[in-house]
Simulated assay, not measured.
Amino acid sequence: MNVALDALIAARVVPVVVLDDAAAAEPLADALVAGGIRAIEITIRTPAGLDALASLASRDDLIVGAGTVTSRRELADVRAAGARFAVSPGFDADLVYAARETDVLPVPGVGSATEAQAARRAGLDHVKVFPAGALGGLPFIRALHGPFPEMRFMPSGGVDQTKAAEYLADPAIFAVSGSWMVPAEAIRDGDFEMITTLARATMAALDA
């Protein structure tokens, strides 16, 4: 199995982070690790995204990936910045094949049986489901898992601490992603203690 995928499965929770200031990346990562979280997805929706990603890439206490990767150019950029995995909102076979030619793990989003089948045809068995909440949550994923029993899913969108525990109790789920433990106001205010508290509460809920 892919080393990056192993790390995501072990982490279970993947915070989705939007940063306007790359200088916040290190204290944010420290806060997450202190709370027991071992993965982070830095979106590249802001100008600070790539610099933030690069500043964390050499850390060995969490796996660092990129979010909202939608083109070959963006894939090349996040790979150069040190991303170990690249998450996309939707499924793009061309992007998946491009990623599989590199050492970056592709984690595309799917939202239908058609897209899950296309992902399987592209050789993937671990994908994101987005937007999970709007699509129906766990019942939808269980229905999708029926015809694709070899696939595992990472719900994103509408996930919170309570839903995270519910999702991860199901064998169809390999991880969950979301931003409930990294609220924008806490990042903006530099309240990294709050982020550690939320991360710790999240991991405690999973192990309860």
Rank of each mutant, 00 (worst) to 15 (best):
T102D: 13
A76S: 10
I195W: 00
L198A: 05
A175R: 09
I9L: 08
L5N: 08
A39E: 03
A76Y: 00
N2R: 15
A52H: 00
A39V: 07
A134D: 11
A52N: 03
F140W: 14
S177E: 14
I195G: 00
G158Y: 13
A134P: 08
T102K: 11
G158V: 13
A199Q: 08
G123M: 14
S58W: 07
R59H: 10
T196S: 14
D30G: 02
G67E: 04
E193H: 02
L198G: 01
L53M: 14
A81N: 04
G65S: 10
S156K: 05
A22C: 06
M154Y: 05
A48Y: 04
D60C: 03
G65L: 02
P89D: 03
A83D: 04
A116H: 05
Y97G: 13
F140M: 10
T102H: 10
S177L: 06
G190N: 02
F192V: 03
A132D: 06
M181L: 13
P27Y: 06
E166M: 06
A57N: 01
S177D: 11
I37M: 08
A52G: 14
V159K: 10
T197Y: 01
R100T: 08
E74D: 13
L5Q: 14
D30R: 10
V16N: 02
D61M: 11
P149S: 03
G90V: 11
A83V: 06
G109T: 03
M151Q: 06
R45N: 09
V96A: 03
M151D: 06
I173M: 08
G67D: 05
I173G: 07
G157L: 03
R84G: 06
L62H: 08
R45Q: 05
V69L: 10
R152E: 08
A83G: 07
A199M: 08
D92S: 11
L144T: 13
A143N: 09
S179C: 07
D92V: 15
A132P: 09
G137Y: 08
R100F: 05
D30E: 15
M203P: 03
V127F: 15
A164Q: 13
A205D: 14
P15C: 11
L138C: 07
L32G: 01
D94R: 12
P47Q: 09
P155F: 02
T162I: 12
V104P: 06
P106V: 02
R73C: 06
K163P: 04
A99P: 12
Y167A: 06
V176Y: 03
L62W: 04
Y167D: 09
P108D: 11
A165E: 03
G158T: 15
R73L: 12
A165L: 04
P47G: 01
S112D: 09
A201E: 13
A54H: 09
A23V: 00
R142W: 11
I187A: 00
E115I: 10
P131E: 12
